[in-house]
């Protein structure tokens, strides 16, 4: 029974990692950059939810506020910090993203202070039993949201016109331009989607552990980035697989007393193993030009 509980918990936290990893991987695939401020967008969304909760008091309104704020923030960051660097050396873009991460964390600390805010209204108490297995409602909600988000995103990418354009831009930006695709607009849409997903992930995290501080997004951000690389950065199914895998490993490691203190080491060592065996990640592709 411990085994099944570990799987369910793993799927749930893995789902949250996957939703965050999707933001990293989509931005990487389409804008060809690592947005290291992605985790901090989660945190900023958390504060937007905190404000919405203090004003309106309803969790759904808080979620909406968080999504709207994150989308605006993500698009603004892209427009004013990253877009001017299009075509610049990758290192310059990377440093800018890291700088953006610190900027957001410091801003939040200046505005909201260092003491954590408790968003207890987001909590979903209660659980149900399957036989002798206890499942929290919050775990169930996380699982459902994960499935819905992944399905919706997959359908959007595969069936919609902007989705097809996103794949085209990620494969070959110049060729996409020649099709008449406004690549700048597609990159902005990608940041908007990634940031909306960050807000959803932030909500799921705060629903389980309502303590919000300016470093809320730091560790989940790094883990989700790891998940994206494990799955194959740039690959959307890869981010899903990587996130779930990381969550399940984390959950198993926690459930084994001897390993529990080393859980993060265990998680990051999967990255090393995967990179040794398949440097492009589980579902990552090394494309070769065909002549």
């Amino acid at each position: 029974m411990n085994f099944i509980a570990a799987i369910i918990n793993g799927l749930s936290s893995g789902g949250t990692y996957a939703i965050i990893a999707l933001g990293y991987t989509m931005v990487y695939g389409i804008a060809k950059m690592l947005n290291f401020a992605h985790g901090d967008i989660i945190m900023m969304g958390g504060y937007a939810m905190y404000i919405a909760l203090s004003l309106a008091g309803h969790p759904i309104l808080a979620l909406v506020a968080g999504i709207v704020f994150c989308v605006l923030l993500g698009v603004a960051i892209e427009r004013y910090a990253y877009k001017p660097l299009r075509g610049a050396a990758p290192l310059a873009v990377l440093i800018t993203a890291i700088g953006m991460s610190y900027l957001l964390q410091s801003l939040a600390q200046i505005i909201f202070g260092s003491a954590p805010k408790m968003l207890v209204k987001l909590q979903v108490p209660g659980f149900f039993m399957i036989g002798s297995l206890r499942v929290d409602y919050s775990t169930l909600i996380t699982l459902i949201v994960t499935v819905v988000v992944m399905t919706a995103l997959t359908v959007f990418i595969k069936k919609s016109k902007p989705g097809r354009a996103m794949v085209a831009v990620s494969e070959d930006r110049d060729a996409a331009l020649l099709m008449g695709i406004n690549t700048n607009a597609i990159i902005a849409i990608t940041f908007a989607i990634g940031s909306a997903l960050a807000a959803v992930a932030g909500y799921l995290m705060l629903m389980k552990a309502p303590s919000l501080s300016n470093t809320l997004g730091a560790m989940p951000g790094i883990k989700a980035f790891t998940a994206a690389v494990i799955g194959g950065i740039g690959s959307i199914p890869g981010a899903m697989v990587g996130g779930i895998l990381l969550g399940v490993v984390e959950s198993f490691s926690y459930s084994i007393p001897a390993l529990a203190p080393f859980t993060e080491a265990v998680e990051f060592s999967i990255l090393i193993v995967v990179l040794l065996v398949k440097p492009s990640g589980i579902l990552g592709k090394m494309r070769r030009e065909k002549v």
């Binding site: 097809r164 794949v167 085209a168 494969e171 070959d172 110049d174 060729a175 020649l178 592709k285 494309r287 030009e289 065909k290 002549v291």
Partner: peptide, 12 residues
């Protein structure tokens, strides 16, 4: 413009 090297979208 049909670019050199075809530049089709291989994953689509």
């Amino acid at each position: 413009h049909v670019p050199e090297g075809r530049r089709i979208f291989q994953g689509l």
